[in-house]
Design a protein around this nucleic acid. Structure first.
Length: 393
RNA sequence: GGAGGGGUGGGUGAGUGGUUAAAGCCACCAGACUGUAAAUCUGGCGCUCGUAAGGGCUUCGUAGGUUCGAAUCCUACCCCCUCCA
C-alpha cells in the first residue's frame, strides 16, 4: 500500500504539542485540526459554504449511517462523497465501529464482525473489517478508518482485552483489504488504538497497531465515560507511543478544554459531535466557559453571545434574539448556535496552532484554562477540591 | 330582568367525598450531552425542619355548614362568561 497522494509533515513542535500539515487528494490541512462531524454527509443545519467560512478544513462522515441510508452504492453512483455532499475539501469517514458502542442493544459483536439491527427499519446487517473497509472505499473519503470495537467505560478488563485483541485482528484485515484495493492509492487508512482505561492494555495496543504501516494512528475508546484525568493520562501515554512522523487522531474529542489538553499531549486531529449537538440544545461556548443561553436571564441581553467573537451569529444578532429563537423553537436558533460553536472551536484550534508555531503554546494553554469554566459537574468538583487543598495545605 | 356556565397551585387545565400537596402541558430552575438512533434526555418546581429517611404547616373565589374525612356535598356572599329580553 502506498499513499502516493497522502502525506503528513511535522512543521513545528513545542513540548509535545505539534503543528503540521496533511496533504490529501482534496487539499492541504493545517494541524492541529478539528473536523466538524457530518455523520449523514451534512454538518447538521449548515451548508458546506457556511462550514467552510467557519474555517473548517475537513469534515468527518459516518460510513455506517451512509451505508444504511442512502447506501454506499448510491453515493458512489452520485459521484462519491465529496460531490454528493458538495464538500470539495478533505473528508474522513468513520468505519461504524463506534456504533458498536453507541447503538447499545441494537448490536451484537462476535469475531467475524458486528451485527447491527438498523435503527431505521430493524433490518439486520453485519459489518466485517472487509465490508467496513470496502464501504469506506466506496464512499471515497480521503482518510478512512479501521473497523474497531469501541467499548464502554466500566467493562471488565477481560472484556476490554477481548475487544482490543479483536480490534488488532480486524486492523490487520482492514489493512490487507485496503492494500489490495484499486482505490488504495487515493485513500489513507488509519489504525486505531484501543485498550480502555488500562495503561498496560493501551501499551499492548500501541505496539500491535503501530506494527502495521498505517498512514496515521488514532486513539479510540476515549471520552466514553472515564473521568478527564484518566482520559488525559491515556492520551498522553498513547500519543507518546505513536510514531512522530504520522498524524495522531484522537477520536470523538472534544470539548474546548479537552482539545487544548490533548494538543498538549501531541494529538494532531480531532472530531466531535459535541459543539454542534450542544448548540442545538441551547448551549454555547465562550472563552469563559459553556453557557446555556435558554435561561431566562438572557432574555434581554443586548450584546452578542460573546464579545470579540468574529462569527456570523455574534456579528449580527443579540443574545436576546438567540434566546427568543430557542424559546420559540425556531430553526434558525439551531443554525446560529451551531455557527457560533463551530467557529469558537475552529478559531480556538487556529490559535492553538499559531501559539505552537510561535513557541507560546504553554502560555496560551494556561491562559485558556484560567478563563475557561466547563459546566461539567465533575470538573467543577475537581476544581473545588483542588482549590480547597491548595487553600488548606 | 330571565336562562345557563364557571371561579383549582406563576399560566393553562384535569380532578366531582378518602389512595390529592392536587394529573398533563407551558413557564421557570438545575444537570447531562465528546468517532451524532439526539432541534434530545434527566431532575426540581406551596412554605418549612432534616445530610437523608422522613416530619410539620398552609392551599383549590370568600365565609359558614354537613361529614370520621371536602377542591369535591349544602348555604350565603363576591366575581367572571354565554345566550335571551
Amino acid at each position: 500500500m502506498t499513499d502516493t497522494r497522502f502525506s503528513f509533515t511535522l512543521q513545528h513542535q513545542q513540548g509535545r504539542a505539534r503543528a503540521g500539515e496533511l496533504v490529501t487528494p482534496h487539499g492541504r490541512v493545517a494541524t492541529p485540526v478539528f473536523m466538524p462531524v457530518a455523520t449523514q454527509a451534512t454538518v447538521k443545519s449548515l451548508t458546506p459554504e457556511e462550514v467552510l467560512a467557519l474555517g473548517a478544513q475537513m469534515v468527518l462522515c459516518n460510513a455506517y449511517h451512509l451505508y444504511l441510508r442512502p447506501g454506499v452504492e448510491m453515493v458512489a453512483r452520485l459521484g462519491g462523497l465529496h460531490r454528493f455532499m458538495a464538500w470539495p475539501r478533505p473528508t474522513l469517514t468513520d468505519s461504524g465501529g463506534f456504533q458498536a458502542f453507541s447503538l447499545g442493544a441494537l448490536r451484537q459483536v462476535d469475531e467475524a464482525g458486528i451485527r447491527f439491527r438498523s435503527h431505521l427499519d430493524g433490518s439486520l446487517h453485519q459489518f466485517t473489517p472487509e465490508l467496513a473497509t470496502a464501504n469506506q472505499e466506496g464512499l471515497g473519503a480521503d482518510i478512512i478508518m479501521c473497523f474497531d470495537q469501541c467499548i464502554a467505560y466500566g467493562a471488565s478488563k477481560e472484556e476490554v482485552r477481548q475487544a482490543m485483541e479483536r480490534t488488532h485482528r480486524w486492523a490487520l484485515a482492514c489493512h490487507r483489504t485496503h492494500a489490495a484495493s484499486p482505490t488504495a492509492a487515493g485513500q489513507a487508512l488509519f489504525g486505531i488504538v484501543q485498550g480502555g482505561a488500562f495503561p498496560d492494555l493501551r501499551a499492548e495496543s500501541v505496539a500491535a497497531i503501530t506494527a502495521i504501516p498505517f498512514s496515521g494512528y488514532a486513539i479510540g475508546g476515549l471520552a466514553v465515560g472515564e473521568d478527564k484525568a484518566q482520559m488525559y493520562e491515556i492520551t498522553q501515554q498513547v500519543a507518546a507511543g505513536l510514531p512522530a512522523g504520522r498524524p495522531r487522531y484522537l477520536m470523538g474529542v472534544g470539548s474546548p478544554e479537552d482539545l487544548v489538553e490533548s494538543v498538549a499531549q501531541g494529538v494532531d486531529m480531532f472530531d466531535c459531535a459535541l459543539p454542534t449537538r450542544v448548540a442545538r440544545n441551547g448551549a454555547v461556548f465562550t472563552r469563559r466557559g459553556r453557557v446555556d443561553i435558554t435561561a431566562r436571564r438572557f432574555a434581554e441581553v443586548t450584546g452578542p453571545l460573546e464579545d470579540g467573537c468574529d462569527c456570523y451569529t455574534c456579528g449580527h444578532f443579540t443574545t436576546a434574539y438567540l434566546w427568543h429563537l430557542f424559546r420559540a423553537r425556531e430553526l434558525l436558533a439551531l443554525r446560529l448556535a451551531s455557527i457560533h460553536n463551530l467557529r469558537f472551536i475552529l478559531r480556538l484550534m487556529a490559535e492553538v496552532r499559531q501559539a505552537i508555531i510561535a513557541d507560546r503554546f504553554e502560555e496560551f494553554r494556561r491562559e485558556f484554562h484560567d478563563a475557561y469554566r466547563p459546566t461539567n459537574e465533575a470538573v467543577r468538583q475537581a476544581q473545588k477540591e483542588r482549590w480547597l487543598k491548595a487553600r488548606g495545605g
